[in-house]
């Protein structure tokens, strides 16, 4: 009697393919890897960061890239007193809409601050880069108040 042959094969649960992010999203993410932030000019002249591939009003393809500043102003914010496990920061923090210098349309990211009373609409914040950048939105580790930033 022959021993039973057990067939086995390694299996990875996930999407085992890579995907191109294209000339607009890819350019933005590559810029982040190099610690630069690039937006795109919309048909009406507004600078949008992160860039959109198509104009939200006219649907025209967009390719007029503009480098913007690494500081900006809080347009709206909320205070997360109990961060969730999936959140990028595990200490109480803020989500904010931040209008970067040179941009017209704000972007959403997190803001690290010691307490809620340090934050206000209109407060100035600046990027804190991740220690290692890899072409991902989380290359911006968070924003922090410009006054207390080094």
């Amino acid at each position: 009697m022959s021993p039973t042959e057990v067939l086995s094969e390694a299996f990875e649960l996930g999407f085992t393919y890579t995907r191109s992010t294209g000339p607009v999203v890819g350019r933005f993410l590559t810029g982040l890897r190099d610690r630069r932030i690039e937006g795109v000019r919309a048909s009406d002249g507004r600078v949008m960061v992160p860039p959109m591939e198509y104009d939200p009003d006219t649907a025209a393809a967009l390719d007029d890239f503009v480098e913007v500043g690494q500081q900006g102003e809080i347009v709206s914010w909320c205070w997360v007193s109990e961060p969730r496990k999936a959140h990028p920061l595990q200490q109480p923090f803020a989500w904010a809409m931040i209008r970067l210098d040179g941009a017209d349309v704000p972007m959403i990211h997190c803001v690290s601050a010691a307490s809620e009373d340090q934050l206000a609409t209109g407060a100035r914040v600046q990027v804190r880069w991740a220690e290692e950048t890899r072409g991902h939105i989380a290359d911006i580790a968070c924003f922090e108040l410009a006054e207390v930033a080094q």
């Binding site: 992160p50 909320c78 997360v80 959403i108 991902h136 939105i137």
Partner: peptide
């Protein structure tokens, strides 16, 4: 690319 990887939750938005 811009928001889902940050896990911005619906309550916060």
């Amino acid at each position: 690319y811009y928001l889902a990887p940050l896990w911005v939750d619906t309550v916060s938005l």
